[in-house]
């Protein structure tokens, strides 16, 4: 999967905005939006919030977890724990990236948040690499991956799955009869 597709899915999450215009309810196929009144917060999907932001028609309220103290806590926990800790949003990476790129003026301490999210991401990816290594060296057939997000899975997907397939093919050639010959092509 392309990272942009993970971002596409992240854009479906809802976020609070404070519009500076007024508009009646909009009846979209995927649900209703609005009504919009200047100064009154309203929940909309991220793709719409970013579009309004780019047209300077709203202020984005950053999600509650996008806060220096909370993220610091998370980073420390992530470093202490051996397993993956629960993330505040299944799209934390994509959302931080989108919001920090397009609405950094609405986010207090945007630079610190950027660094913290990157730290959390790095710690998690390091864990992910370690566990992938263990998975392969112990030749496991099943792994549980709670708390991993789509983007994290994505970074390792093609590499891990292709190597597992290759190893499977090599192994099934070593054990004749255990699987039918795949060298057809």
């Amino acid at each position: 999967m392309d990272p942009s597709e993970a971002e596409f899915l992240a854009e479906k999450e809802t976020i609070t905005i404070i519009p500076n215009f007024s508009l009646d309810k909009v009846f979209l196929i995927g649900g209703d939006l609005g009504p919009f009144n200047p100064g009154l917060p309203v929940d909309v999907p991220v793709w719409f919030a970013l579009n309004l932001k780019q047209r300077q028609k709203c202020r984005i309220v950053p999600p509650a977890w996008m806060d220096v103290e909370k993220l610091e806590e998370m980073r420390d926990l992530e470093r202490r724990e051996g397993a993956f800790t629960p993330v505040p949003s299944p799209f934390y990476m994509e959302l931080s990236k989108l919001l920090l790129n397009y609405a950094s003026d609405n986010i207090p301490k945007a630079d610190e948040i950027r660094t913290l999210v990157k730290d959390i991401w790095d710690t998690r990816i390091a864990k992910l690499r370690l566990s992938a290594d263990r998975f392969i060296s112990q030749m496991e057939a099943h792994a549980r991956l709670d708390n991993l997000t789509l983007m994290e899975i994505n970074t390792i997907r093609s590499f891990l799955l292709d190597s597992l397939n290759c190893m499977y093919r090599l192994r099934s050639n070593l054990q004749p009869g255990s699987s039918k010959d795949r060298a057809d092509y």
């Binding site: 998975f135 030749m139 496991e140 057939a141 099943h142 792994a143 549980r144 991956l145 709670d146 708390n147 991993l148 192994r171 054990q175």
Partner: peptide, 25 residues
Amino acid sequence: LVEPETDDQREYVVDLEEGSQHLMR
């Protein structure tokens, strides 16, 4: 039922809880 990867491993069963994430064949 999860089938073993190599001959010296044994097959075993896993339960998939609602909302849990897994990697398997």
